[in-house]
Simulated assay, not measured.
Amino acid sequence: MQNINLIDGYKIKSIYIEDKKVVEKLCGKCSDYYMLHDGVLPSKDEVDEIFTALPPNKDYEDKFVLGIYKFNNELVGIVDIVRDFPTVGEWMLGLMLIEPEERGSGLGKITHQALAKWAINLGAKYFRIGTIEDNHKGINFWSTLGYTKIKEVNMDFKAKAHIVNVMILKLCNQL
């Protein structure tokens, strides 16, 4: 993936498992998300899973782990996307995590718009996400972007069980 330039010197670029120390630091800053989602702080194994976890019948050619960087090359966010899952043309946003100091600034929306354009150019027709029902801010964020709930799924996480809202966005409206 080529770098995507955002506003004010922010950029999106590929990030690799060799960079996991900075990802660990970011995940630590985002402990509020992990406590809400999993009920425990993120472990080193969980950070590794950002880079290694794949859904059924997918390989690493279909997985993109992307960093959101400030003008000074500081990692302030991470996005995990799987191409053509669960169906061709539908891309799963497995994780979009932005450090608390950057939230509410519009960075998430700007990042999403740039990723939508990039994915459309690679054949994406839809983005799909799963948001736990207890994550009211997350549901509001995704709904504001145009995502609609298509179903609910019960899932067990590290120390919690949740109802997950599966939401979808048709990308042709994002250009």
Rank of each mutant, 00 (worst) to 15 (best):
G108D: 03
Y69F: 15
G138A: 09
A124S: 10
K125S: 08
A119E: 03
F141S: 04
M92H: 07
K125T: 07
Y126Q: 13
T148V: 08
M92P: 02
N140Q: 08
V76E: 12
V88Y: 12
I129R: 02
T131N: 00
A119V: 04
I120T: 08
E102M: 06
I81V: 15
W142Y: 01
E133R: 07
Q113L: 09
F127S: 01
T144K: 15
V76Y: 10
V76P: 13
G130A: 15
A124V: 12
L122P: 00
V79L: 15
G77I: 15
L75W: 11
A119K: 05
H136C: 02
G104R: 11
E101P: 00
E102F: 01
Y126K: 15
T87Q: 15
A124N: 10
N140P: 01
G77Y: 10
G108H: 01
L115Q: 09
A124I: 12
D80Q: 12
H112D: 04
I139H: 04
L122D: 07
G104E: 08
E99H: 04
W91I: 05
V79N: 10
G89P: 08
A114P: 12
T144F: 04
K125I: 05
E99W: 03
D84V: 06
K125E: 15
G104F: 12
T144I: 11
F127I: 07
I120P: 12
H136R: 06
G130F: 13
